[in-house]
Amino acid sequence: MNTRKIEIMVGFFVTLSIGAMIILAFKVADISATGSGETYELKAKFDNIGGLKIRSAVKVGGVVIGRVSSIILDPEDYLPVVTLTLGLQYSNFSETSTVSILTSGLLGEQYIGFSPGFIDETVDILQAGDYIEDTKSALVLEELIGQFLFSVGND
């Protein structure tokens, strides 16, 4: 083993660990919406998004068609606006579609359930950047319990 070879191997080792450190720091994975395909964006305004996170899944009937790409608070009415990035192959949704925030299982992660609406001559197809009007907020368990206790107390 000559010195040069050793130096190259050590350099490789150090570079590898710096790379690993960078991966750890940025925690990997720039997972785009649906793999690498082309995407478009829709927006939806909710009253309460519960535990929804960036990169949560958007599902139609359990099939992942896209992901949440950003969550911001509308500065005017203080309601959260969620941007959904969907695969371009799923682009034919009508304006009557609804989105709701659902939980997978009792304690699981939250995702967006997307129910496609009906299509006829009177309704338009959602274009990129459109807002989905019909939204259903997340069920917050604490609020439900609060309401339940309140109604019990009234009886």
Binding site: L24, K27, V28, A29, K53, R55, S56, A57, V64, E109
Partner: peptide, 20 residues
Amino acid sequence: IDAGNFWSIMQSKVDLVDDV
């Protein structure tokens, strides 16, 4: 398991200073 959930929940739970 959903890849997005795998990474995003990990990212929200793992802290650079506290954990790494």
